[in-house]
Amino acid sequence: MKALRQYLEMVGHLSEEDIQSLLAFVRFQKLKKGDFFIREGQVSIEVGFLVSGLIRSYYTTNTGEEITYCFRFPNDMIAAYSSFITGNKTDENLQAISEVELLVFSKQELNKLSNDSLNWTKFLKEIAELQYIELEKRIFQLQKTTALQRYEDLLQNQPEYVQKIPLQYLASYLGITQRHLSRIRKEFVL
């Protein structure tokens, strides 16, 4: 709960009473490696706060290929965000790629908090803005940088976790083949 409290305090706008209101709803959840927080075709009705472990977000193409487009690390919020907002079925999968510990709360609980306190409305707006900025950064990264630069960025921002990501997921995230990833890793070490 300490990490979640720090996250809530960092984003701001929330009083101690607001934070306590959320903590009263939070439940602890563990996922084993390979388990899903949400699968394609489901409606996202929960948000998780990643305490430990790694989550990958991916979708499956019409040909059955899995495309990893995002990783979530400890102290990140996770949800199938567009489904969470719209109430429509999601096209994405959120899968544990290691043992995962989460603090989970429901959309219904967040809506109640938002109805009771303007601070929660401000908080949710800020989270939406952060999600937008992250998405925009990812789009620009894919369009403006090389796979080597994307790999370096990941190493700079999450060095302790990069080695724990299976190569096929890492290659997919970078938009390259596993063979190309092997060449980049060798080049990077030199």
Rank of each mutant, 00 (worst) to 15 (best):
80 A>T: 06
49 F>I: 00
76 D>A: 09
131 Q>D: 03
49 F>Y: 07
9 E>M: 03
156 Q>S: 15
18 D>F: 02
43 V>E: 08
85 I>D: 00
172 S>M: 12
120 W>A: 05
48 G>M: 03
176 I>W: 00
124 L>E: 01
20 Q>N: 11
180 H>A: 15
183 R>W: 04
94 L>A: 04
7 Y>R: 09
73 F>T: 06
90 T>S: 13
45 I>Y: 05
120 W>T: 03
72 R>L: 12
115 N>I: 05
34 G>I: 08
117 S>W: 03
52 S>P: 03
46 E>D: 14
148 L>Q: 14
66 E>W: 02
18 D>S: 14
168 Q>N: 14
24 A>H: 10
21 S>Q: 06
14 L>E: 00
88 N>P: 01
113 L>M: 02
164 K>M: 11
121 T>M: 08
26 V>A: 05
45 I>W: 00
107 K>P: 02
117 S>N: 11
179 R>A: 11
185 R>D: 00
16 E>H: 04
40 E>S: 14
19 I>N: 01
168 Q>Y: 12
40 E>P: 06
158 Q>S: 14
33 K>S: 13
139 I>T: 09
139 I>K: 13
178 Q>L: 01
32 K>A: 14
176 I>V: 15
52 S>D: 14
165 I>Q: 03
183 R>H: 09
49 F>N: 00
12 G>R: 05
91 D>S: 11
65 E>D: 14
16 E>M: 03
93 N>C: 08
39 R>A: 12
84 F>N: 00
157 N>H: 13
43 V>K: 09
162 V>M: 08
172 S>L: 10
25 F>A: 09
151 Y>S: 10
162 V>W: 07
127 I>N: 02
35 D>K: 09
7 Y>K: 15
183 R>Y: 06
173 Y>F: 14
138 R>P: 02
122 K>I: 03
36 F>L: 11
135 L>I: 14
123 F>P: 00
29 Q>Y: 06
184 I>N: 04
35 D>Y: 10
131 Q>C: 07
122 K>Q: 11
139 I>V: 14
